[in-house]
Measured scan of single mutants.
Amino acid sequence: MKVMIRKTATGHSAYVAKKDLEELIVEMENPALWGGKVTLANGWQLELPAMAADTPLPITVEARKL
């Protein structure tokens, strides 16, 4: 699914347009965010693609819901 990742004042957030859902990312498998699992505030887990740590945000990526 397409997910937009952006930086907020409190960390990172994910927006899933198909579900009209925006949630804070509360847990990251990798400190650089990319190439691992993230957990959203509502409990969803997404697998993000591997990208460079300095990838500019906001960005829309293809993520997989676990």
Results as ranks from 00 to 15, higher is better:
A52E: 11
M51I: 08
S13E: 07
A50V: 12
W34F: 10
K19G: 14
E27F: 13
E47P: 00
A17R: 09
T8I: 09
L66T: 10
D54V: 05
I59P: 01
V26A: 05
K19Q: 15
A14E: 00
G35L: 04
P49I: 06
R64H: 10
L46N: 00
G11L: 06
M4G: 04
D20I: 07
A52G: 09
L33I: 09
E29D: 10
E62L: 14
G36A: 06
I5A: 01
I59F: 09
K18E: 15
E22A: 08
V3F: 03
E29P: 01
S13L: 12
G36N: 03
I5N: 03
M28T: 11
P31G: 11
M4Y: 08
V38P: 00
K2Q: 14
E27A: 13
A53Q: 10
V3T: 02
D54M: 07
V16I: 15
S13D: 04
T55P: 06
I5E: 00
K19W: 15
L48F: 03
A32S: 14
L48M: 09
L40N: 01
V61R: 01
G11S: 05
L21N: 07
P49W: 05
A63G: 06
A63S: 06
R64W: 12
G36W: 05
V16N: 07
W34T: 03
K18R: 12
L66F: 11
D54I: 06
G35C: 05
L21I: 14
A63E: 03
E22K: 05
T8L: 09
I25L: 05
V26Q: 03
M4D: 07
L21W: 13
A50D: 12
L48I: 06
Q45I: 15
E29M: 05
T39E: 05
E62M: 15
L46S: 00
R6D: 06
A17C: 15
R6N: 09
P58E: 02
M1C: 14
K37T: 12
E29R: 04
K2M: 15
A32H: 14
E62I: 15
H12Q: 05
M4K: 08
A9R: 11
D20W: 08
L24M: 13
K19A: 15
A53V: 11
K18F: 15
A52F: 07
G43L: 03
T60I: 12
P31T: 09
V38S: 03
V16T: 04
S13K: 09
A50P: 13
A63W: 04
V61W: 01
P31E: 13
V3W: 01
E47A: 11
Y15S: 08
E29C: 06
P31L: 09
A63F: 06
M1F: 14
L33C: 07
V61L: 07
V16E: 02
A41R: 07
P31I: 09
M4A: 07
L24T: 12
I5S: 01
K7V: 08
L48K: 00
K7D: 03
I5R: 00
K37S: 10
K37Q: 08
M51G: 02
K18N: 14
L33R: 03
T10P: 04
N30M: 09
A17L: 15
H12W: 15
P56I: 11
V16R: 00
G11Q: 05
G11T: 03
V26G: 01
P49L: 05
P58Q: 03
A41P: 02
M1R: 02
T39F: 07
D20P: 05
E47M: 14
W44K: 00
L66E: 04
L24S: 11
D20G: 14
K18Q: 15
K65R: 14
I59C: 10
N30G: 06
G35Y: 04
G35D: 06
R6C: 11
K7N: 06
A9Y: 08
P49S: 05
T55M: 07
L40I: 02
G11K: 01
A50L: 12
P58S: 02
L33H: 02
L66M: 11
G11V: 03
A14H: 05
E29Q: 09
Q45K: 11
K37G: 06
A17M: 14
I59V: 13
E27Y: 14
T39I: 11
R6P: 00
L57D: 03
H12C: 07
M28F: 11
M4N: 08
H12D: 02
V38E: 02
A53S: 11
A50T: 10
A32G: 14
L40K: 01
V3Y: 00
E29S: 09
M1I: 14
A17N: 08
K19S: 15
V26D: 01
L66N: 05
S13Q: 09
T55F: 04
A32P: 04
N42C: 09
T10D: 12
R6W: 09
A32T: 14
I25T: 01
N42M: 04
A9H: 10
G43S: 02
D20M: 11
M4S: 10
K18C: 15
G43W: 03
M1E: 07
L24C: 11
E27K: 11
N30F: 12
P49K: 01
A32C: 11
A63Y: 06
A50S: 11
L66I: 14
M1S: 04
R6H: 08
I59R: 06
N42E: 02
M1V: 13
V61H: 02
R64Y: 12
L57Q: 02
K65P: 11
K37Y: 12
T10G: 12
P56S: 09
K37C: 09
M51C: 05
N30R: 09
W34Y: 01
T60Y: 11
V26S: 04
G36Q: 03
M28V: 08
P58R: 04
I25D: 01
T55A: 06
M4H: 08
N30V: 07
